[in-house]
Design a binder for these strands. Structure first.
Length: 271
DNA sequence: AGAACCACCTGGCAGC
DNA sequence: TGCTGCCAGGTGGTTC
Protein backbone atom coordinates (compact mmCIF):
# COMPACT_ATOMS: atom_id res chain seq x y z
CA UNK A 1 0.00 0.00 0.00
CA UNK A 2 2.11 2.78 1.18
CA UNK A 3 4.80 4.71 -0.53
CA UNK A 4 6.42 7.75 1.02
CA UNK A 5 3.39 10.08 0.77
CA UNK A 6 1.13 7.59 2.51
CA UNK A 7 3.64 6.96 5.30
CA UNK A 8 4.25 10.67 5.77
CA UNK A 9 0.50 11.37 5.73
CA UNK A 10 0.09 8.71 8.42
CA UNK A 11 2.91 10.28 10.45
CA UNK A 12 1.35 13.73 10.27
CA UNK A 13 -2.06 12.39 11.18
CA UNK A 14 -0.71 10.64 14.25
CA UNK A 15 1.67 13.32 15.39
CA UNK A 16 -0.77 15.75 16.94
CA UNK A 17 -2.77 12.94 18.52
CA UNK A 18 -0.06 10.95 20.24
CA UNK A 19 3.11 12.99 20.75
CA UNK A 20 3.34 13.72 24.46
CA UNK A 21 1.04 10.83 25.32
CA UNK A 22 2.11 8.16 27.76
CA UNK A 23 2.12 4.48 26.80
CA UNK A 24 0.21 2.12 29.05
CA UNK A 25 0.95 -1.03 27.05
CA UNK A 26 1.71 -2.55 23.69
CA UNK A 27 -0.66 -5.41 22.95
CA UNK A 28 0.48 -7.78 20.21
CA UNK A 29 -2.22 -10.18 19.06
CA UNK A 30 -0.27 -11.61 16.13
CA UNK A 31 3.54 -11.46 16.18
CA UNK A 32 3.90 -13.15 12.78
CA UNK A 33 4.72 -10.14 10.64
CA UNK A 34 7.53 -9.78 8.07
CA UNK A 35 9.93 -10.14 10.98
CA UNK A 36 8.68 -11.69 14.22
CA UNK A 37 7.58 -9.02 16.69
CA UNK A 38 10.00 -9.37 19.66
CA UNK A 39 8.15 -11.16 22.46
CA UNK A 40 9.37 -8.64 25.05
CA UNK A 41 8.69 -5.53 22.99
CA UNK A 42 6.04 -4.20 25.39
CA UNK A 43 8.60 -4.09 28.23
CA UNK A 44 10.54 -1.43 26.33
CA UNK A 45 7.62 0.96 26.00
CA UNK A 46 5.40 0.57 29.07
CA UNK A 47 5.26 3.80 31.02
CA UNK A 48 7.23 5.72 28.40
CA UNK A 49 6.14 9.00 26.88
CA UNK A 50 6.12 9.40 23.08
CA UNK A 51 8.55 12.23 22.44
CA UNK A 52 8.23 12.34 18.64
CA UNK A 53 7.13 10.43 15.57
CA UNK A 54 9.62 10.60 12.73
CA UNK A 55 9.96 8.90 9.36
CA UNK A 56 12.95 7.40 7.57
CA UNK A 57 12.15 6.02 4.12
CA UNK A 58 8.88 4.13 4.63
CA UNK A 59 9.63 3.39 8.29
CA UNK A 60 7.91 5.22 11.13
CA UNK A 61 9.87 5.71 14.35
CA UNK A 62 8.07 6.30 17.62
CA UNK A 63 10.67 7.95 19.83
CA UNK A 64 9.97 6.73 23.34
CA UNK A 65 13.10 8.19 24.94
CA UNK A 66 15.84 5.59 25.23
CA UNK A 67 14.74 3.87 22.06
CA UNK A 68 12.29 3.73 19.20
CA UNK A 69 9.45 1.60 18.05
CA UNK A 70 10.27 0.88 14.42
CA UNK A 71 7.22 0.28 12.27
CA UNK A 72 6.81 -0.51 8.58
CA UNK A 73 3.40 -0.70 6.92
CA UNK A 74 4.51 -3.20 4.29
CA UNK A 75 2.13 -3.60 1.39
CA UNK A 76 -1.23 -3.43 3.13
CA UNK A 77 -0.63 -1.94 6.58
CA UNK A 78 -2.26 1.07 8.19
CA UNK A 79 -2.39 2.81 11.55
CA UNK A 80 -5.49 4.34 13.09
CA UNK A 81 -6.23 6.04 16.36
CA UNK A 82 -9.31 4.54 18.01
CA UNK A 83 -10.93 4.72 21.43
CA UNK A 84 -9.76 2.21 24.02
CA UNK A 85 -12.20 -0.69 24.11
CA UNK A 86 -12.81 -0.71 20.35
CA UNK A 87 -13.04 -4.37 19.42
CA UNK A 88 -10.16 -5.58 17.23
CA UNK A 89 -10.96 -7.00 13.81
CA UNK A 90 -9.33 -9.95 12.08
CA UNK A 91 -6.20 -8.17 10.84
CA UNK A 92 -5.68 -5.79 13.76
CA UNK A 93 -2.37 -7.24 14.90
CA UNK A 94 -1.17 -4.75 17.52
CA UNK A 95 -2.37 -1.86 19.70
CA UNK A 96 -0.24 0.83 21.26
CA UNK A 97 -2.39 1.58 24.29
CA UNK A 98 -2.12 5.13 25.62
CA UNK A 99 -3.10 6.39 29.07
CA UNK A 100 -5.36 9.05 27.51
CA UNK A 101 -8.08 6.58 26.55
CA UNK A 102 -6.92 6.12 22.97
CA UNK A 103 -4.90 3.51 21.18
CA UNK A 104 -2.92 3.36 17.97
CA UNK A 105 -4.08 0.26 16.11
CA UNK A 106 -1.91 -1.51 13.53
CA UNK A 107 -3.85 -3.33 10.82
CA UNK A 108 -2.13 -5.35 8.10
CA UNK A 109 -3.97 -8.08 6.17
CA UNK A 110 -0.93 -9.34 4.27
CA UNK A 111 1.45 -9.08 7.24
CA UNK A 112 4.34 -7.74 5.18
CA UNK A 113 4.69 -4.95 7.72
CA UNK A 114 6.95 -5.00 10.75
CA UNK A 115 6.99 -3.86 14.37
CA UNK A 116 10.39 -3.80 16.03
CA UNK A 117 12.32 -2.06 18.77
CA UNK A 118 15.67 -0.36 18.37
CA UNK A 119 17.94 1.45 20.82
CA UNK A 120 20.02 2.95 18.03
CA UNK A 121 18.02 3.62 14.87
CA UNK A 122 20.96 4.90 12.84
CA UNK A 123 22.71 1.57 13.30
CA UNK A 124 19.70 -0.70 12.82
CA UNK A 125 20.34 -3.10 9.92
CA UNK A 126 17.06 -2.20 8.23
CA UNK A 127 17.86 1.53 8.33
CA UNK A 128 21.63 1.76 8.11
CA UNK A 129 21.98 1.17 4.37
CA UNK A 130 19.01 3.14 3.08
CA UNK A 131 19.50 5.65 0.29
CA UNK A 132 18.78 9.35 0.11
CA UNK A 133 15.42 10.92 0.97
CA UNK A 134 13.77 12.11 -2.26
CA UNK A 135 12.48 15.34 -0.69
CA UNK A 136 15.88 16.26 0.73
CA UNK A 137 18.54 18.42 -0.98
CA UNK A 138 20.79 15.36 -1.37
CA UNK A 139 18.39 14.05 -4.00
CA UNK A 140 19.48 16.21 -6.92
CA UNK A 141 20.55 15.81 -10.53
CA UNK A 142 24.25 15.59 -9.71
CA UNK A 143 23.64 12.79 -7.26
CA UNK A 144 21.24 10.91 -9.55
CA UNK A 145 23.55 11.17 -12.52
CA UNK A 146 26.59 10.01 -10.56
CA UNK A 147 24.79 7.22 -8.69
CA UNK A 148 23.32 5.72 -11.85
CA UNK A 149 26.63 5.51 -13.82
CA UNK A 150 27.41 1.96 -14.90
CA UNK A 151 23.96 0.63 -14.03
CA UNK A 152 22.41 -1.60 -16.65
CA UNK A 153 19.19 -2.01 -14.68
CA UNK A 154 16.25 0.04 -15.89
CA UNK A 155 15.76 3.56 -14.62
CA UNK A 156 12.46 2.48 -13.09
CA UNK A 157 14.07 -0.27 -11.05
CA UNK A 158 16.82 2.12 -10.03
CA UNK A 159 14.24 4.65 -8.79
CA UNK A 160 12.56 1.93 -6.75
CA UNK A 161 15.81 0.70 -5.17
CA UNK A 162 15.70 1.88 -1.56
CA UNK A 163 19.46 1.52 -1.27
CA UNK A 164 19.69 4.37 -3.78
CA UNK A 165 16.68 6.59 -3.11
CA UNK A 166 13.96 5.72 -0.62
CA UNK A 167 10.21 6.09 -0.62
CA UNK A 168 9.50 5.77 -4.35
CA UNK A 169 7.40 2.67 -4.94
CA UNK A 170 5.64 1.21 -7.93
CA UNK A 171 2.97 3.88 -8.36
CA UNK A 172 5.14 6.97 -8.04
CA UNK A 173 8.02 5.52 -10.06
CA UNK A 174 5.67 5.12 -13.03
CA UNK A 175 4.13 8.53 -12.46
CA UNK A 176 7.47 10.34 -12.08
CA UNK A 177 8.85 8.77 -15.27
CA UNK A 178 5.74 9.84 -17.15
CA UNK A 179 6.13 13.42 -15.93
CA UNK A 180 9.79 13.39 -16.93
CA UNK A 181 9.03 11.89 -20.35
CA UNK A 182 11.39 8.95 -19.80
CA UNK A 183 10.72 5.36 -20.91
CA UNK A 184 10.80 3.12 -17.81
CA UNK A 185 12.95 0.57 -19.70
CA UNK A 186 15.83 2.94 -20.30
CA UNK A 187 19.04 1.71 -18.65
CA UNK A 188 19.76 3.88 -15.61
CA UNK A 189 23.37 4.30 -16.70
CA UNK A 190 22.31 6.11 -19.88
CA UNK A 191 20.45 8.89 -18.12
CA UNK A 192 21.79 12.24 -19.36
CA UNK A 193 22.31 15.14 -17.02
CA UNK A 194 19.39 17.18 -18.46
CA UNK A 195 17.10 14.19 -18.06
CA UNK A 196 18.41 13.62 -14.53
CA UNK A 197 17.34 17.20 -13.79
CA UNK A 198 13.89 16.54 -15.18
CA UNK A 199 13.52 13.25 -13.35
CA UNK A 200 14.50 14.73 -10.00
CA UNK A 201 11.94 17.53 -10.46
CA UNK A 202 9.30 15.07 -11.65
CA UNK A 203 9.83 12.75 -8.68
CA UNK A 204 9.65 15.63 -6.22
CA UNK A 205 6.57 17.09 -7.88
CA UNK A 206 4.85 13.70 -7.93
CA UNK A 207 5.54 13.03 -4.25
CA UNK A 208 4.58 16.56 -3.21
CA UNK A 209 1.33 16.40 -5.17
CA UNK A 210 0.48 13.08 -3.53
CA UNK A 211 1.33 14.51 -0.11
CA UNK A 212 -0.84 17.55 -0.72
CA UNK A 213 -3.69 15.23 -1.69
CA UNK A 214 -3.23 13.13 1.44
CA UNK A 215 -1.72 10.04 -0.14
CA UNK A 216 -2.95 7.48 -2.63
CA UNK A 217 -6.28 5.80 -2.23
CA UNK A 218 -5.58 2.87 -4.52
CA UNK A 219 -7.64 -0.04 -3.21
CA UNK A 220 -7.71 0.37 0.54
CA UNK A 221 -5.43 3.16 1.72
CA UNK A 222 -6.85 5.13 4.63
CA UNK A 223 -5.52 7.94 6.78
CA UNK A 224 -5.13 7.65 10.53
CA UNK A 225 -8.64 9.06 10.85
CA UNK A 226 -10.06 6.50 8.43
CA UNK A 227 -10.56 8.91 5.54
CA UNK A 228 -9.61 7.66 2.08
CA UNK A 229 -6.68 9.29 0.32
CA UNK A 230 -7.36 11.08 -2.94
CA UNK A 231 -4.35 10.56 -5.18
CA UNK A 232 -5.69 7.65 -7.22
CA UNK A 233 -7.80 9.81 -9.49
CA UNK A 234 -4.74 11.90 -10.32
CA UNK A 235 -2.66 9.06 -11.80
CA UNK A 236 -1.55 9.70 -15.35
CA UNK A 237 -0.41 6.18 -16.17
CA UNK A 238 -0.51 3.85 -13.16
CA UNK A 239 -3.21 1.16 -13.59
CA UNK A 240 -4.40 2.88 -16.78
CA UNK A 241 -3.21 0.38 -19.42
CA UNK A 242 -5.48 0.48 -22.47
CA UNK A 243 -6.75 3.95 -21.60
CA UNK A 244 -5.77 7.10 -23.50
CA UNK A 245 -2.83 9.18 -22.36
CA UNK A 246 -4.17 12.36 -20.75
CA UNK A 247 -1.54 14.38 -22.58
CA UNK A 248 -1.38 12.93 -26.11
CA UNK A 249 -4.18 10.38 -26.39
CA UNK A 250 -1.93 7.39 -27.18
CA UNK A 251 -2.88 4.12 -25.50
CA UNK A 252 -1.14 3.59 -22.13
CA UNK A 253 0.86 0.35 -22.06
CA UNK A 254 1.73 -2.06 -19.28
CA UNK A 255 4.83 -4.23 -19.03
CA UNK A 256 6.60 -6.31 -16.39
CA UNK A 257 9.85 -5.10 -14.88
CA UNK A 258 11.40 -7.04 -12.02
CA UNK A 259 8.11 -8.85 -11.36
CA UNK A 260 6.27 -5.53 -11.03
CA UNK A 261 3.87 -3.86 -13.42
CA UNK A 262 5.03 -0.70 -15.12
CA UNK A 263 2.75 1.71 -16.96
CA UNK A 264 3.84 4.26 -19.53
CA UNK A 265 2.80 6.27 -22.54
CA UNK A 266 4.71 5.01 -25.60
CA UNK A 267 4.48 8.41 -27.27
CA UNK A 268 5.28 10.78 -24.39
CA UNK A 269 8.07 8.68 -22.85
CA UNK A 270 11.32 8.13 -24.76
CA UNK A 271 14.44 6.06 -24.22
C1' DA B 1 29.07 -5.54 -7.10
C1' DG B 2 25.04 -5.98 -9.27
C1' DA B 3 21.15 -8.22 -11.49
C1' DA B 4 17.47 -11.62 -11.54
C1' DC B 5 14.53 -14.24 -9.05
C1' DC B 6 12.17 -15.94 -4.76
C1' DA B 7 10.05 -15.51 -0.48
C1' DC B 8 6.66 -13.86 2.88
C1' DC B 9 0.70 -13.40 3.08
C1' DT B 10 -4.34 -12.39 2.38
C1' DG B 11 -8.02 -10.67 -0.34
C1' DG B 12 -10.31 -9.22 -4.45
C1' DC B 13 -11.49 -9.96 -8.95
C1' DA B 14 -12.10 -12.11 -13.72
C1' DG B 15 -13.11 -16.10 -16.06
C1' DC B 16 -14.93 -20.53 -16.48
C1' DT C 1 -22.40 -20.19 -6.80
C1' DG C 2 -17.97 -21.81 -6.47
C1' DC C 3 -13.68 -22.97 -8.03
C1' DT C 4 -8.97 -21.50 -10.09
C1' DG C 5 -5.60 -18.44 -11.29
C1' DC C 6 -3.82 -14.08 -11.22
C1' DC C 7 -3.09 -9.56 -9.41
C1' DA C 8 -1.88 -6.09 -5.66
C1' DG C 9 1.22 -0.29 -2.77
C1' DG C 10 7.46 -3.75 -0.22
C1' DT C 11 11.84 -5.46 0.38
C1' DG C 12 15.41 -8.77 2.39
C1' DG C 13 17.65 -13.02 1.03
C1' DT C 14 19.66 -16.22 -2.26
C1' DT C 15 21.92 -17.35 -6.35
C1' DC C 16 24.52 -16.60 -10.30
Amino acid sequence: MPELPEVETTRRGLEHLVVGAQIRDLVVRNPHLRWPVPHNIARHVRGRQIAAITRRAKYLLFDCGGGNLLLHLGMSGSLRVVAAGTLPQKHDHADLVLTNGKLVRFTDPRRFGSLLWTDQPEQHPLLARLGVEPLSPEFNANWLHAASRGRSASIKQFLMDAHQVVGIGNIYASEALFLAGIDPRMPAGRLSMPRAERLVSAARDTLNAALAAGGSSLRNYRHSDGELGQFQSCCNVYARSGEPCRRCGAVIRMLRQGQRSSFFCPRCQKR
